[in-house]
Simulated assay, not measured.
Amino acid sequence: MWLFVCIVLQSAPPVQGYNYSMVPVNTTVYMGKSTTFTCSIVPGNGMLNFTARLPLNSYTLQCPGKNLNFPSMSLYGSCDNKPNQNTASWQMSNIGSDVNGSAFICSGDGLDVQVGYLWITGASKYYLMLFGCVMGGFFGILIIFGVTYVSLKRSERLQECFKGKPEEEDDIEGVEEETIKD
Rank of each mutant, 00 (worst) to 15 (best):
I120P: 05
L9D: 06
N81K: 09
M92V: 13
N49P: 00
Y18N: 04
L128W: 09
N26Y: 06
V113L: 10
T38K: 06
Q10R: 13
E160S: 14
T148K: 04
I120C: 02
S72Y: 09
S124W: 10
L61W: 08
G137W: 06
G96L: 01
F37N: 04
S107G: 10
G108I: 02
L128R: 10
F37P: 04
E160G: 12
G132R: 03
E178I: 08
G46M: 02
S155M: 05
V5R: 06
Y126E: 12
N67K: 07
L111M: 08
G101E: 05
I105V: 15
I141Y: 04
V29P: 09
D170A: 14
N69A: 14
Q10W: 14
L9V: 12
E169M: 11
D109V: 11
C133K: 14
F145W: 08
G116Y: 07
V42D: 13
E168M: 06
L3F: 13
V134H: 05
C106H: 02
R157M: 09
A88H: 00
P71F: 01
V8H: 02
D171K: 14
L3C: 09
L75R: 00
S58D: 15
N84E: 08
A88V: 09
T148E: 10
W2N: 12
L111C: 05
K125D: 13
C133L: 13
L56F: 07
K153E: 07
S21D: 08
N57T: 10
L61N: 03
K33E: 05
N86Q: 13
D170N: 12
G136A: 13
S11R: 03
T121N: 11
E167D: 14
T28R: 14
G116T: 08
M92S: 02
N84Q: 12
I144P: 01
L158D: 08
S93Q: 11
G44R: 04
G17V: 03
V25Y: 11
Q62S: 15
I144R: 06
T148W: 01
E156H: 12
G136L: 13
T60K: 03
I120Q: 02
R154G: 04
G116I: 06
I144W: 06
W90F: 11
M92C: 02
V115P: 00
E173L: 12
L111Q: 10
N94I: 07
Y127V: 13
F139Q: 01
N19W: 03
L111R: 06
L142M: 11
D171V: 08
T121Y: 06
I172H: 03
G174N: 05
Q91R: 15
T28N: 11
F139H: 00
I143M: 09
T28D: 02
S102N: 10
P14M: 00
N67C: 03
E160C: 13
Y149P: 00
